[in-house]
Nucleic acid binder design. Sequence first.
RNA 1: CGGGGUGUGGCACAGGUGGUAGUGUGCUUGGUUCGGGACCAAGAGGCCGUGGGUUCGAGUCCCACCACUCCGACCA
Length: 478
Amino acid sequence: MATEKKVEQITARDVDFAQWYTDVVKKAELIDYSSVKGCVILRPYAHALWENIQRTLDGMFKETGHENVSMPLFIPESLLQKEKDHVAGFAPEVAWITHGGGEPLTERLCVRPTSEVLFCEHYAHIIQSWRDLPKLYNQWCSVVRWEKTTRPFLRSREFWWQEGHTIHATREEAEEETLRMLHVYATFAEETLAMPVVKGQKTASERFAGAENTYTIECMMHDGQALQSGTSHFFGDGFARAFNIQFTDRTNTLQYPFQTSWGLSTRIIGGIIMTHGDDNGLVLPPRIAPVQVVVIPVAAHKPGVLEAARALRARLRAAGLRARLDDSDQSPGWKFAEHEMKGVPLRVELGPRDLAGDQCVLARRDTGAKQTAPLESAEAAAAALLEEIQSHLLEAARTNLRERTHTAASLEEMRHIAQTQGGFVKTMWCGGAACEEKVREVTGMKSRCVPFAQESLGDACACCGAKADTMIYWGFQY
RNA sequence: CGGGGUGUGGCACAGGUGGUAGUGUGCUUGGUUCGGGACCAAGAGGCCGUGGGUUCGAGUCCCACCACUCCGACCA
C-alpha cells in the first residue's frame, strides 16, 4: 500500500473535458504549437496516425476508381470570385498573398481554403467530349482557413485533408457518386476507427457554399457533443455553368456536366481522441494505431530477458503486427504509463518469471485486463486480442451514441435535454429554416442532419407544431 | 469578435511593499535498481513572451502588442 509518487497527471476526463483533451494531445506527443496561431506541428506519432488513415482511405478511393492529383496552393482572386455562393462562403476566412519577391502582385492570390475552383478551371481545359467523363480525382493536401479561435485537430488555420473532386456526364451519376463516397467515409469510420456514425443530409442552411446538397457523417463524442466527421457534396451543374465547363454528348449537343466534392480531415484525429480516450490518455483502435503491440522487458538486465523480448518483437512483426520493443532504460512502471498515455492497444510484459514459465503477460489498453499466454503462441493471442479490442471499442462507442441519443416532441423538452444531458436530440421537423433558427436560439443546438434512417416520432414539428414528416437530429457541435 | 485565465531553464510552478532568479521534474555522467511512473552522487542549462515607459535600479509598477488556453458568437 505504497503511496504513489505524485507525477504530472492529465486532467480527469469527466471533470474538465476540454482541458483533458488539450492535455492528451500534448502528453501523447501528437502535436506541438508553432509560432503562428492555429498552425500546429504534427509530431511523428500524429503523423504516423495520419499516414495510417491515409493508407486505408486512399486504398478505398482507388478501389472506387479514383486517381490522385496535386493542385496549386494559390488561387487568383478573380478565379475565386467566379461562383458567387462559393466565394461568399469562403472569402471571410481566406489568407491573401499580396507580394511576391518583394514586389506587389497585380492580382492578389488566396491560399486555397478548398480547391473547387482550381479543379473547375482545370476541368474546363481538359473536358470536351462525353468520352472525357467522368473524371474521378482526389488530392491529399493542406488548406488554410483563417479561423478566429483554434483548437488542435478540431479547428486550426492550416489543416491536412483529402478532397475528392469528380465530374460526371449526368446528374444521376454525380448524385450516386456523392452518396457512394459518403458511404466510404461511414464504412471507414466504423470499421477502421471504431466510430459509429449517423449518416444523413444537411439542411439547406448547413450546406457547403455552392452545393445543391451536402451529406454528412456525424459522430458522438464522449462529452455529448457532435463532430461532423466527413462531408460529401453534390454541386449539380452550378459550378460547370459558372466556369463554363461543357462537353459534347453522344448526340452532338453541348451539355454542362455535374460535379461532386467530398472531404475528410485531420479533424478526425480529434474525433478518435474524444471517442475512445480515457483518464490514462489516448486509446487507439488497433486498426489505426501506429504501434499495435509494445513489448516491455522486465528486469531487462537479467540473462535472456532482452534476447527473448527481441525475438518476441520479431515474431509479432512477422505475424503482420505493428510491434515495438521498448528497451529504453526507464523502469517498467514508467513504460506502462507512457504507452498507456499514447494509447497503444496491447502491451506485452516479458520478465524472468514469464521466461521461467514459458509465458508472457498481455495487458489490454481498453479494459486494463491482464492475462498470460504461452510464449510459443503469443502472436496468435495478441492478434486475437487486437481484434477483440477493436470490436469492443466500437461497441462502447455505439453504446455512448445510443445512450446519448434522445427523443423530444416539444421545444421545451429539447431545451431540457440540451441543458441537462446534451447529446443528439431527434425530433420531427417541418422543414422550415425558421424553426432551425428558433431551436438554436432556445436550446443552443444546431441541426446535425436529416438521417437516412428515418423514424416516425409523430406528425408534428417539435418546434412549431405544423405538420411534419421528417425526422431530424440536433446537437451541440465542435 | 466579445468575456476570463496564463506567459519565468525542456516541462510544471515559486518569486509580499522594486535591488539582477529559485524549487520540483526532465536532461548529462557514474553507480545501484527493475512485475505499475525506482534511488544515490556530481554536473549542465534562464537577454523572466515582445516593445515602450517610470526609476539610480524592473521578473516585480504603468501602457501597448503578441501568443497559448477556456467560455460564448462564426466555420471542416
